[in-house]
Design a protein around this nucleic acid. Structure first.
Lengths: 318, 318
DNA sequence: TATATTTGTGTAACTGATTACGTAATTTAT
DNA sequence: ATAAATTACGTAATCAGTTACACAAATATA
């Protein structure tokens, strides 16, 4: 299919479907040629029953990977043709025990030849290919079980978006953004406190001039995230990670992560032995980000903020 | 899927279907996440239209490998959402020209990002596999186009059946079969002639004792085919292939082919320079077999048989 | 022991494709 | 110029699966 060369691999789904269709179409004809009176779609069910044991509908469904209504329907159809017998389980009234009838077993024998021939034909095709379809499917099944396609795509999206984000040093022109981004989340969850106004209205005096740093995350030259590294006057801690704020419209771009990384990098450059932070457990994504960055919870300390109910630290020496 | 390890490759169809399903299921979710308002099944249609040109329903169907009703339905759905516009062709009243609306074109741009991410995710999966699914599908598509699965299976069947056939030298116990098998086809198509009775009732005297040979094809020890190599008293020809007969219930076992091969082999051993035969053009499969064996039509010669209307020879020296 | 939860199954409705068929417009052949 | 064949396309029915839901039976829990 010329078409698929253009679209690229996004169309694996469509392409797989078409190959599947072609094969099942021929499968139907093959069953007809051998005149066994078995519908191709019955095959998986028939196959598991051919071992001889009685099985329940759900057990069959689980084994062949179909939904149970699908098996239920197939069994009904096969029953009509006299290939299977259904019987309620005596000890468990819910169970419908299914097994092959003598007529069904007869077909098992006839089917052997067909299976041999189909297998031979498929092996012959495989022998002519340099890429093994069977094994490739197996690998895909495994990998998709590890992580779904969806979450892989989301991951790819984040990675690509993150590449568009640049982290830069604070400049006076970002003053408004620094305040606005912080005010946005603070007033959403809590209310602005006096200490907030001090540092947000005067970042130069209260943060930079005292040996701190501020980073700004730009996306298309627009400041969508900010974060400060504040020098602390404390025997236990050198710096505090504070005023981390990311615009809600910039979700999924890893801005928080990139800002955190920049802050940690800067602290290391400054020879800090650790970083301290205060937050609130109501801010789940924030706490989860801090965890990912390596911060650990520590016992509470005095704080000027009402909203702080959790303290964390990152040890830079380990 | 454990199940597929048991069934062997007969179940490629089922297995492919399940992988396809898993992928398309996630595809649906992916479209949802990106919030583009495009249904996954619309993608192929959307894609070909995104080039910008107006296209007819059937042209799209052909390009993406769907049936035209499928495209017709998809276009109707997309039309309802205002993504495509339909317009009757002025010069050809049958044609329904379809193109993207401005709204549809807008989506094209939004879709770019999604395609990038999905492609990246799939490439990431591919990178982790040792067997390339994409290329494997391509190979299968190609090989199935060359020869359908059905005809490959039929071929495998013939080959397997042929392996069960053994060609043996004539023995007195096959005398009845030699006559019966020949009488069967002769009286079906023509009527038995005096010359027939001579050689069928007395094969030893009329064929073997005069330097000829008879081969019998056995299937499960049952004689289902016979053929004679008769010494000729003729300056042009050494031997005649005659009394070839295969039971109609033994179709698809290549018995004719195997007998023919044995006869030719024997003639070569005997140092014959050629083999002659007479037949009737009404016997299509026989003539086709003789052709496959290498016999060529030659001008008519005197013959004791009324039914002969074609003569052929095989040159063993070339 | 009474209640809640889980399990096994069947029915109904949906889905994304197909084939079959009908109709109208166009093209080809006589 | 007319008849026959082909082409474009829509509608209906079908197919092989699915999910959603209902209900009874069995099991777990308070």
């Amino acid at each position: 299919m010329e078409f698929f060369n253009k679209t690229g691999k996004v169309a694996v789904g469509s392409r797989l479907r078409m190959l599947t269709e072609k094969i099942t179409e021929d499968a139907a004809k093959i069953y007809e040629v051998y005149g066994i009176g078995l519908q191709p779609k019955w095959f998986p069910v028939f196959y598991v029953l051919s071992a001889g044991e009685e099985k329940t509908i759900t057990a069959i469904a689980k084994e062949i990977g179909h939904s149970h209504p699908s098996v239920s329907k197939i069994i009904a159809e096969m029953g009509k043709k006299g290939l299977v017998a259904e019987q309620k389980d005596k000890t468990d009234g819910r169970r419908n025990m299914v097994s092959l009838t003598p007529k069904g077993k007869e077909i098992t024998i006839k089917l052997q030849d067909q299976l041999l021939d189909v297998n031979a034909a498929i092996e012959a095709i495989s022998a002519q290919t340099t890429h093994d379809l069977w094994k490739a499917i197996e690998e895909w099944e495994y990998l998709l079980e590890q992580q779904s396609l969806l979450s892989r795509v989301v991951e790819a999206h984040k990675k690509r978006e993150a590449a568009k984000v640049t982290i830069v040093d604070y400049q006076p022109k970002y003053k408004a953004a620094f305040k606005a981004l912080n005010e946005e989340w603070i007033s959403t969850w809590f209310k602005m406190e006096a200490t907030d106004y001090k540092s947000l209205d005067h970042p130069e005096e209260y943060i930079l001039d005292r040996g701190g740093h501020i980073f700004v995350a730009l996306y298309n030259d627009e400041p969508l995230g900010v974060c400060a590294l504040v020098k602390m006057d404390d025997p236990d801690y050198d710096y505090e990670l504070a005023k981390m704020a990311v615009s809600p419209k910039a979700q999924g771009k890893s801005i928080g992560w990139l800002l955190g990384q920049a802050i940690i990098e800067k602290a290391k450059q400054l020879g800090a032995k650790n970083i301290y932070l205060e937050s609130n457990t109501i801010l789940k994504p924030a706490i989860s980000l801090y965890n990912k960055l390596g911060f650990k919870k520590v016992p509470g300390r005095p704080t000027p903020y009402e909203r702080a109910n959790i303290q964390m630290e990152l040890d830079l020496r380990s």
